[in-house]
């Protein structure tokens, strides 16, 4: 074994703590959690590969199950896409929190001298990034399999808004579910009723863009998505501390 004793002058050097602005510290904590989640995931690929394989299998199964003509395919596309994103997203949310809980790392996060909502935003942002990467891969595959052009800026915006809301609510509820023994089944049971308005709005807005509806018909659904995102991010910001406390 190596000699554990470092030079005394190194030990004696005072540790300097950044006492900068509170907001700066808040952002630093968020970025640290995101960096940690991305670095660990890039190495293990456990969460991402599970989400991606699941998502690709779902659209493949729908492709064979629904032998549809081109017109009908356009009408079911938004439904198939959002079912795929929702289920794959749930897998990712469950795993993301389970990693913290299983090795006791949640305590490590809770011991950090930062506002606990920063931990929430870090975890939610990490989950959102994984969801978006899966979506970026799934969309062209879906386009190829179903022969439908999905590259519409409006549809991309709806997918982004829907994913933000899904990650925001999902992270909060997975922090609750992970503390129970039945977390794998509990998260979908808690999550799907709460995200129902989000999924309906995302589905309607996506369908509107794919079917070429007028913007007046699509706007109410986009507004609902924005309001849902804002409300649930605010709720999570306020209650996350109580959710994670013992």
């Amino acid at each position: 074994m190596t000699d554990p004793t470092p030079p005394m002058e190194a030990i004696e050097q005072p540790v300097v703590i950044n006492r900068g602005s509170r907001f700066g510290g808040y952002l630093r904590a968020i970025s640290a959690v995101v960096w940690k989640d991305l670095t660990a995931e890039l190495r293990s690929r456990e969460l991402f590969s599970a989400m991606l394989v699941f998502a690709l299998l779902v659209i493949l199964i729908f492709n064979f199950a629904l032998e549809l003509d081109i017109r009908t395919r356009e009408t079911v596309t938004s439904g198939v896409l959002w079912v795929t994103f929702a289920f794959a997203g749930t897998l990712g949310l469950n795993r993301s929190m389970a990693v913290e809980k299983d090795r006791g790392c949640m305590d490590g996060l809770l011991l950090a001298p930062v506002d606990r909502s920063a931990l929430y935003f870090g975890k939610a942002l990490g989950s959102l990034i994984f969801m978006l990467i899966v979506e970026v891969i799934v969309l062209p595959v879906y386009s190829g399999l179903y022969n439908i052009n999905l590259f519409h800026p409006g549809l991309m915006a709806v997918i982004l808004l829907g994913s933000v809301g899904y990650a925001a609510v999902g992270t909060l509820l997975s922090a609750m579910a992970v503390q129970t023994r039945t977390r794998d089944v509990l998260l979908p049971i808690l999550l799907f009723p709460v995200v129902l308005p989000l999924l309906v709005a995302a589905l309607k807005a996506s369908n509107g863009f794919l079917q070429g509806f007028e913007m007046e018909e699509i706007w109410p659904w986009i507004n609902l998505l924005i309001v849902y995102d804002v409300i649930f991010i605010a709720v999570a910001f306020m209650v996350f501390d109580y959710v994670v406390e013992e």
Binding site: K36, T39, A40, E41, S44, G104, D107, G108
Partner: peptide, 12 residues
């Protein structure tokens, strides 16, 4: 704080 668990990430 040092607890029963090391509070470390295995993939880092």
């Amino acid at each position: 704080v040092v607890t029963h668990q090391p509070l470390l990430y295995g993939d880092l």
